[in-house]
Design a protein around this nucleic acid. Sequence first.
DNA 1: CCCATGGTGTTACCGTCGGTAACCTACTGT
DNA 2: ACAGTAGGTTACCGACGGTAACACCATGGG
Lengths: 197, 197
Amino acid sequence: MASQVGGDRALERRAALLEAADRVVQREGSAASMNLIAAEAGITKPILYRHFGDKSGLYRALAARHIDELLDRLRTALLTRGGLAARTRATVDAYLSSIEGNPQIYRFLIQRATVEEPDVRGEVEGFVRRFGDELAAGIRNEPTLQGISASRATVWAHGIAGMVQAAGDWWLDHPEVPRSTVVDELTALLVAGFDLD
Amino acid sequence: MASQVGGDRALERRAALLEAADRVVQREGSAASMNLIAAEAGITKPILYRHFGDKSGLYRALAARHIDELLDRLRTALLTRGGLAARTRATVDAYLSSIEGNPQIYRFLIQRATVEEPDVRGEVEGFVRRFGDELAAGIRNEPTLQGISASRATVWAHGIAGMVQAAGDWWLDHPEVPRSTVVDELTALLVAGFDLD
DNA sequence: CCCATGGTGTTACCGTCGGTAACCTACTGT
DNA sequence: ACAGTAGGTTACCGACGGTAACACCATGGG
């Protein structure tokens, strides 16, 4: 439904265009424009539009790759054995190591893809939202937290998603802080709250 | 330094222009353009530019009002008597009731003012960042948490800021959930972590 | 009385962006 | 030889952020 052109060869082309877009975002950050992306792919704008409909469509497609990959990692981390603290730690670490590997892209996704398209709110569902939904499912399945109320799971999930995202965003600007420190502190807060220490 | 024109009458004008901008943002959301704001103020673009330099300048001035007011409320809430849980609850509630009163504006500030100006990162400091700094100070002053490490206070603060913001953002789209529920759940998580309940 | 000055405002323009219409070209099967 | 279609381009549109240039109308000295 996202693709504007059918056929099997079109899919390869699509993938190639997305890789070009990826490179441009990585290089130019939020200055990535349709023209630049088209140029990077060695073509011109209208082709881009034939494939993705509009800018939102391209962003969606671009986001889908990275977000799906990230969500996969989070889903895996959510299954870590060893107790609630270990699972929490693994999940936070999975998020931070993902954004560490490609800060430019993730900043772009969090900011641009979440903001620039108020119309798509709920269709793509912002980054943090999907992270939140994923977490809500994880929390509801958490053995230690059986019987948790639905509203608590939901509020917690979206809150935690924002927490990890904001701390990660801050951390990208403070690389002198080791990732393990951020992970440790966030995990401690989530597992035991202020009362710890 | 933000103002481009001196004089005392200019200050009243500036305030009037900001109020016009406020109305437009409230009405049009993120579609607020310099032209629209100028029209709302009964003037044309160049005057706006004489007063605020550029779009970033206007946004900064617009953000300053609301953010300063919000930070004041948070600062007050941070001084609530009655123990850590009460202070936490009051602070979270202060944030949520602020955004509830003017969702359109706060969405705009969180998104636009934080994003649209990667060059000013650190000058205006995004919304969540300043919230985080304020919280970090509050946490360091927290009697119950004396001796907390600097890195812990900082990471926690930015994490909590993002947590409350994200939960608030989600809540704006789910008004059927009472504010007190969101406040209760977030407070519980912050104070005692998962281990509660 | 005239004219310089400075604030307030306008019109008209520039480059760039997202998006589209129209056209062109080559390969394909019949 | 001919239609059809995938793939591509040029040239344009309206709207945006931003600016240059000009016009108005007070004031206050010479």
